[in-house]
Design a protein around this nucleic acid. Sequence first.
DNA 1: ATTCAACCGGAGCAATCCTCCGCTTAGCAA
DNA 2: TTGCTAAGCGGAGGATTGCTCCGGTTGAAT
Lengths: 215, 215
Amino acid sequence: MNTELSSVFQVATKQPRKKQEEDATGGALRADARRNRERLLAAAHAVFSERGADASLGDVAKRAEVGIGTLYRHFESREALLAATCDERLLLLARESRERSESLPTLEALRVFLAELVHCGGMYKGLAASLGIVLKNHTVGCDATTAEGERLLKAAQREGEVRSDVLLDDVVCMAMAISLAAAENGSDPKRIPRLTGMFFDGLRSRPEPRGARQR
Amino acid sequence: MNTELSSVFQVATKQPRKKQEEDATGGALRADARRNRERLLAAAHAVFSERGADASLGDVAKRAEVGIGTLYRHFESREALLAATCDERLLLLARESRERSESLPTLEALRVFLAELVHCGGMYKGLAASLGIVLKNHTVGCDATTAEGERLLKAAQREGEVRSDVLLDDVVCMAMAISLAAAENGSDPKRIPRLTGMFFDGLRSRPEPRGARQR
DNA sequence: ATTCAACCGGAGCAATCCTCCGCTTAGCAA
DNA sequence: TTGCTAAGCGGAGGATTGCTCCGGTTGAAT
């Protein structure tokens, strides 16, 4: 939680040794390095898919037919690797959300965004637990998703639809929780929409002062 | 994380070998066994307090001046040990809640219960991540807390104050999430009440039909 | 005092994480 | 082509930790 989801903040993501210019996609790498990076990503996706987000990194390296040292050189930590592995998906999430928000009311766009985030947390078993840390890795996808979330939230708040004191981290955290709950075995399938809905209602600005309504 | 908070359900808690009659408190144990059990609990509390809920169990045994085997004989898993360690606290939580609910409106009692649960999740660093599993251990305290939560929730639902489709697990899960968020370093102190409040608003029955309210 | 089920303890195996450093090679310049 | 060297490779190995197993010990009932 687990493993360690003890301290939930940090920054991470450091490319090979120096000169990473071309951002996290690995642009300025030597040919062999680039090839290995791609192999690692593919292997990671495969292994995480079938064994969960806390699979052995040794297995990932093995599957990529690469030394464990190589894995660690490319990805500083499990979270960095996870972030890189989810990158495309997150990028897509952000892009689609942006498009959607042009034809949807802000609040609705935010709701779908949240639902997608929850869904993303279920990408690999156990991913939800570290989604918070993962999103802090400055990957193209992570940054895009974070930015988009911030944008939607701020907009909804400007429109008076959402409590003004809520932070994006609050939202991310709740998305994690919901993903987590969804992963419980024996959990009924309606739980996700139920929790998402509840959370969303709580997010909204209060229409009436509230005190009223007895019993 | 999770360590490892991958699969979140299970039952656990099995006393020594057989004849545990007197429930989890360890009534029918041999004198030496009982003594060791108590030492382990004290040590566990100490170690978990200073190193977090995912501290090495070897350290716990060492601090208790007991073999690691003894630890595992008494507590089947880390979660069982955690549950036993939190037992008193949970028992108190349940008792106080019950008393409180006699002088408070149900909804308010439920709110305080939730807040207390969140607070309890912060008892040891990293405890929140496994609170769900921990509560599933059939300890006196766990059972009492679960029962009390169920009672309050059901009552609030009967009174029409809370959505009728919500389950206790949903509530526990959200409490975990909030505890978790509170543990982030750099997290502002107002986050807990904010999140608890939001969650609570979401929990409540909707007064209006739904569609209404524009903007 | 005798007996034995219950209990103790820690050696030891297995799984992981992550670092460290000697060897290899891509890619550039002459 | 050849030579050079920084960048990259890879895996041995130290350090943790989890958990099991079993020979030896002891409480307590008779």
